[in-house]
Design a protein around this nucleic acid. Structure first.
Lengths: 251, 251
DNA sequence: ACCTGAACACCGTTCAAGT
DNA sequence: ACCTGAACACCGTTCAAGT
């Protein structure tokens, strides 16, 4: 706070990349993603806006750095402990906790799942190892991992948005439905009226269990007949659907 | 193009809400979401920027209107035709086609799935009707629908981003992996090296099939023993996992 | 009613200048 | 090297004025 101008002496630099990112994250967590402007961030640090550009090339880099910072906090489970379903569940919980700790960053978190930071590759290593221990062949491992990641991102999006918006805006389907006569959307009306008040699911586990059951069905299918040609989940479709039709519009 | 000033005569208004939204969508599809500024949009319409505010209250309303416009194009399948798995698949394909037709809008599409436009309630009506015809009780219908929607949004996000970014940026996990020695991420390296070049899944159907298998497992479970207490997917966990442990950290 | 134009309070970023 | 300050080219939006 003392010095006002000029180059600081060695050891007393006022800024660092890390410090900028930590402050940016605090700003985002506290006031939302739109509050994080370069000028506002600089003000928060008590510094000229342009000083930031000596540590990070642009705003996009700041947001990428913040996202990387958060991902580095991912508390991955120890590998290969317990049944593969529990490994996947533990992975999912770690990701969920990360998102719920920083709901205002959710859009950046989920859009960065495909990026290449080491923290992310480490996370994928854990997920793939869990699925590999289920006995799936490579192609199905990738399919199952994509399924898990896509689901987690979709769930995180919904949960993050619900947390970062004002509670009055976060209307569920049930609430929206009450603005219309019941005969307008008969199935929705029937289902939600037959649902207890506190019976709404909403958690991540419920969906994950269904999803694991689906993966397991394929795993058993593969184990039961390892000599099927070209393997693949097309077999699962036949098995699971009970009707072998492969839709022509697909793909 | 002829008149320059003042109030237009009746019947020759230069602007309409619909026209603004259509132009905004064209701009987004053609040049990306960040190209859609109020000033740019006005220029595209050959009009003063402030003219827009007589038809829409602010930029957020423009984006919401564009999103609603796109959702109104959702080509929902006819209800209750064929087995429920095909109904869900048809619903999923309709949503996928919508996203792939407007990849630059993907973030707004997936964040609006929870909003309350009539088009969206109609879509949910179809999805819930399909799941209801699977014989699931209300609570599991909601769980399964959430699962499907979350997965579709997660998939749409990944697919939309891949399409709207430059192809060189859209690196898959396999490409990123090659920057590291194989012993760094042994499972990932093993799996992707055992995967044929054109064997990468990536489509929406593969995951959906796994997911439907999981729902079906629960549906059979419910049908097979309808007298189980409080029903619910906890049963599916026991059945599917083959290990009755309910993780304490869950929830 | 509908469009205009100036103005306000913001942005991200470049560039030349300070120490 | 690191920070500053003015400047540029944008934003979204308000407000008073035109017809």
């Amino acid at each position: 706070m003392a010095r006002k101008l000029g180059r600081p002496r060695v050891g007393e630099e006022r800024l660092s990349r890390k410090q900028i990112l930590v402050t940016a994250l605090r700003l985002i967590d506290g006031e939302g993603i739109e509050a994080m402007s370069m000028r506002r961030l600089a003000a928060e640090l008590g510094v000229d806006p342009m000083a930031l550009y000596h540590h990070l090339p642009n705003k996009e880099a700041v947001l990428a750095g913040v996202t990387e910072l958060v991902f580095s906090e991912l508390r991955l489970p120890a590998q290969a402990e317990g049944p593969w379903q529990q490994q996947v569940s533990a992975f999912a919980r770690a990701y969920r906790d990360l998102v719920l700790a920083h709901p205002n960053l959710v859009l950046h978190l989920i859009t960065s799942m495909g990026a290449g930071s080491p923290a992310l590759l480490a996370a994928n290593e854990v997920l793939y190892a869990a699925l590999a221990s289920a006995g799936l062949p490579p192609r199905q491992i990738v399919q199952a991992a994509d399924l898990v990641v896509d689901y987690l991102n979709g769930w995180a999006l919904a949960a993050g948005l619900a947390r970062s918006k004002h509670p009055d805006e976060a209307q569920g389907l049930a609430a929206l439905l009450q603005q219309y006569p019941t005969e307008h959307y008969p199935t929705l009306s029937r289902i939600f009226s037959n649902l207890g008040e506190d019976e709404h699911p909403g958690g991540m586990e419920e969906g994950l269990v269904l999803l694991l059951a689906g993966i397991e069905a394929v795993a058993q299918d593969v184990a039961g007949s390892s000599a099927r040609q070209q393997g693949g989940i097309a077999n699962a479709e036949t098995t699971a659907h009970g009707c072998g039709r492969k839709d022509g519009q697909f793909g």
